[in-house]
Computed example of a mutant assay.
Amino acid sequence: MVEQDLALFEVALASAEGTGEFQWFGFTSFHAVQRRFAEDGLIGPDGGVLTVTYGGECAGRVEWFPSTWGRPVTSTCWTLAIGLLPAWRGKGIGTAAQAALVDYLFRNTRAARVQAFTDVENVPERRALEHCGFVLEGVVRRAQWRDGGWHDQALYSALRPGDEAL
C-alpha cells in the first residue's frame, strides 16, 4: 500500500458507485485508516490491507482480519475482504488477488482456516471465491444491515492444505 493508493480508496469509499452495491454502508470517516497507514502501513499482527495491482495500476485492495469461533487463543481464523475499483471489476483480478492472499496467509501464519462472506446475491464474488478454492459452508441469515434492510450472507471457507480430513 502506498499513499497514492490510499487516496484512490478514500474516493472510492465515499460513494455507492465506488464501493459497489454490496459494500456501501453509508458515509464514514476515513481518518482511522489514514492514522493506521501512518502507524504501520496497514500491515500488522491483527491483519492488513494490500493494494491489488494489474498492469502496474492500482485495481483495488484485499484485506484480512481475525475472527473467532470461540476462545481467541484457540479459535481464531482470518477473514478476507476485497474491494476493486469499478473499472477493474469482472476481469478475474479479484479471484487472483484473493487466491494469492490465501496462499500467503497459509504460508506465513499458523491459520488453519481462512473465511470470507458476501451477500447471497453477489454472484460474481461467490464465483470468485469458489474459483480460488473456497467452499460454501452455509447462509448466515439477516447478518448484515445495508441499504435500509437486512441481508443474508453466504459464508465460505478455505482450509490449510492437508487439514481437510481433520
Rank of each mutant, 00 (worst) to 15 (best):
T19L: 06
Q23N: 14
G47N: 01
T28M: 14
R35S: 08
G48K: 09
G56Y: 14
F22G: 03
V52F: 13
V49C: 04
G26T: 13
E21L: 09
F27A: 12
A32E: 13
F25E: 09
Q34N: 05
V33K: 10
R35I: 02
G44T: 11
F30T: 08
I43Q: 12
I43W: 08
F65W: 13
A59K: 09
R36T: 02
V62Q: 12
G48P: 11
F25C: 03
A59D: 05
E63P: 00
R35P: 00
L50D: 06
F22R: 04
W24V: 00
G55F: 15
F65K: 05
I43D: 05
G26H: 12
L50V: 07
T68C: 10
F22E: 08
A38R: 06
E57S: 15
A16M: 05
W64T: 00
A59F: 11
Y54C: 14
T19K: 02
T51C: 05
G47C: 02
E39Y: 07
E57P: 09
Q23L: 10
T68D: 07
F27L: 14
D40G: 10
E39A: 11
F30S: 09
T68M: 06
F65R: 08
Q23G: 01
Q23R: 08
P45W: 11
S29N: 09
Q34Y: 02
G60S: 02
T53Q: 11
A32T: 11
T68R: 06
Q23W: 04
G48L: 11
R35M: 05
Y54M: 10
E39C: 03
F30Q: 11
T53D: 10
G47E: 00
G60V: 01
S15N: 09
V62A: 14
I43C: 12
G41M: 10
Y54P: 01
D46Q: 12
Q23T: 00
A32M: 07
F65L: 12
F25M: 11
S67T: 14
R36G: 03
G41K: 04
H31W: 12
S15W: 02
D40A: 10
E57H: 13
W24Q: 03
P45N: 12
E57F: 14
V33E: 06
F37M: 02
G18P: 03
Q23K: 01
G60F: 00
E17Y: 07
A16R: 13
E39T: 05
Q34C: 11
T28P: 06
E17V: 07
D46L: 12
R36A: 04
Q23P: 00
P45F: 10
G20S: 02
Q34W: 04
P45M: 12
E39V: 07
R61G: 04
V33A: 09
Y54N: 07
F25V: 01
T28I: 13
W24A: 03
T19C: 14
L50P: 00
A59M: 06
V52M: 15
S67G: 10
S29L: 11
D40R: 06
A16Y: 01
G18Q: 04
C58K: 01
F30P: 02
V49Q: 02
G60D: 03
P45Q: 13
P66S: 07
V49F: 02
S15E: 04
V62L: 13
E39Q: 13
F25P: 00
D40P: 06
G44Q: 10
P66T: 08
